[in-house]
Design a protein around this nucleic acid. Structure first.
Lengths: 342, 342
DNA sequence: TTGTATGCGTTATCAC
DNA sequence: GTGATAACGCATACAA
């Protein structure tokens, strides 16, 4: 309840018999102020327990030094790694990070966007929800000249910097690797086709099949939302085929894990009968038995890069920029779930 | 660059030949305004593309509808679960959540606190860094009547709501369980004693030993920071004892996992030679082989409860409240790493 | 039920 | 190098 006692620049000014503008300038290290007065002001401010009112400054300058981050699920390791990267850069450059999760729901994502906008964030970093196919709620930002950076699940329809991982290449190498292990019928459990990342992973898979001289078979490709449950459903379907697969490339590790779990439970040997590769390199992937071969995505680096690009735009708002799509490298990690003894 | 075009309540007022205050009231659904004018104003606002300037409102009301969250590491599953819970409640009640991670460093935690304070968050939810033994940076909030809620790693020195898990009980049951499995020399790898959670886990361990009629042995208790590396160091030390332990209760799952890894690598059978129990129920714990017995903490619920308590305080600032420490239940999950065939 | 007047704390513009 | 003043957009005490 000691709100009345909040010291302002006017209090400091009065005490020193100078003007508030001088105090303001001094506290902002404006070079126009003489060394002597600046020191005096800083000292007095300290003594009086002055704390700048960021709210007032934000209001005045129309800037908040805040960047909004929207991710589908905070506790997904990939996303929390990206957030860590963002947070690291933002913290160093004096920005605050506001984080929200869409829970992969369009409606929530949209409401979050409204809120961030209303709170006048200086910029937005987002990986869109699985559900999101309409982007009106995101047009808000470009329309008002608020920079936005997309990562991972990006949107073609909006012109902006985009950071993606080499999904195609990762999937390609994963599938080639399965072929090199002697697999002839390689199945794919992929994600929803409205998301580029899954489209690209699927394309990499198909290209690898072609380059390996293996035929493609529609029956061997299943698309769903890549949950644990759907992974099990999918593998059951695959096992019911007249010609069963001898390898499965899953578009994420969660699915790979549930697939392996089900295969072992039903008596298959992994990787001997059926080899499995996942995608994302979740922390559990190297700890489980068999450990899961997977494709590593540099989450932390993506966060750093996204924040760098965003903050650069925030600080140079007038400058016209060439938007770029940066493809971060992925690499295949071969573990037990696919390493057959030849 | 379309900043000039931002519609304000004054624009609406002018257009309708009414006063800005009426517009302000109408938009806030102030019941004093007549149904007719309210409708008219809302309609006009919509037509003119009015977007309330939250910055101005915040400045005016000295409230931001923002709650600050400080956790040691965002990507720790327990913490991201708590964050999810907080986010869920906050979102429903119209609050924005600002998240920062201290990386378990006092200095960063302190700077974050300053920033949150400067940004005038309405309240703070925090689990303190491992390093934190001095709390001056947190006194800031109670001093200015900004509510703060502690969870998990709480602070005795500050009067506030606290949500903890039943560390004592969880540790007690874990250790009793090891004793019931026939273990006679149960070791403990615990965390730093400046954190209550680890003090309580250790106390639970000691009480369980006593209640099981087992002697305590100082050599069997090792305290460190519970990283993977330190876990391995610790277990090496234990294995070098003249009388080796036949069970180890670890204060987190990361340590448990590294301990098991090392035990198996050096030829011990888990749980037969040495049984292991962890703490926290990380997602990997049920996936690894052997799966890890552990103590579950209700992270999501803790988040919900913390946010509920905080927001209640924010909304009833005048009310004098009785601070409470809420103990959330833990439960022991018995898995392969401790389940001996008797 | 509506209008008038004022101020929140800071920064920017202009003057000196 | 410093000062005076206005303005940002909104909410509220008070008046009508």
């Amino acid at each position: 309840m000691s709100d009345r006692l909040e010291t302002t620049i006017h209090d400091i000014a009065k005490k020193l018999n100078i003007s508030a503008s001088t105090v303001s300038r001094a506290l902002k290290n404006n070079p126009v102020i003489s060394e002597a007065t600046r020191k005096l002001i800083n000292k007095t401010a300290e003594e009086m327990g002055y704390r700048p009112n960021t709210l007032a400054a934000n209001f005045r300058t129309k800037r908040t030094n805040t960047i909004g981050v929207i991710v589908p699920l905070i506790h997904r390791h990939f996303f929390s790694s990206v957030i860590s990267g963002i947070e690291e850069v933002a913290y160093k450059k004096g920005f605050t990070v506001t984080i929200s999760q869409s829970n992969d729901l369009l409606e929530k994502e949209s409401k979050i966007a409204q809120t961030l906008f209303a709170n006048r964030v200086d910029g937005v970093i987002i990986s869109i929800a699985m559900e999101t196919t309409n982007f009106d709620h995101l047009q808000l930002f470009p329309a008002k000249n608020i920079p936005i950076v997309f990562f991972d699940r990006v949107v073609d329809e909006i012109d902006a910097h985009k950071i993606v991982v080499d999904d195609f290449g990762g999937a390609y190498r994963a599938t080639r690797h399965l072929a090199e292990m002697g697999s002839k019928r390689i199945a794919h459990i992929g994600g929803p086709m409205n998301l580029n990342i899954y489209k690209n992973r699927q394309a990499g898979y198909l290209k690898a099949l072609a380059d390996s001289g293996l035929p493609t078979d529609e029956m061997l490709v299943i698309n769903n939302n890549l949950t644990r449950e759907q992974g099990i459903e999918a593998v059951q379907k695959l096992l019911n085929l007249p010609e069963k697969p001898d390898a499965i490339f899953c578009a994420n590790d969660t699915t790979a894990q549930s697939v392996i779990f089900h295969l072992i439970k039903t008596g298959y040997k992994v990787p001997d009968d059926i080899a499995v590769v996942g995608f994302s390199n979740e922390p559990f992937s190297e700890m489980v038995t068999p450990s899961i071969s997977t494709v590593r995505q540099p989450g932390f680096l993506i966060g750093i890069k996204s924040a760098d690009l965003l903050i650069e735009q925030i600080l140079n708002k007038q400058k016209e920029i060439e938007f770029q799509t940066i493809v971060m490298p992925t690499d295949l990690i071969i573990r037990e779930s696919s390493a057959r003894q030849k």
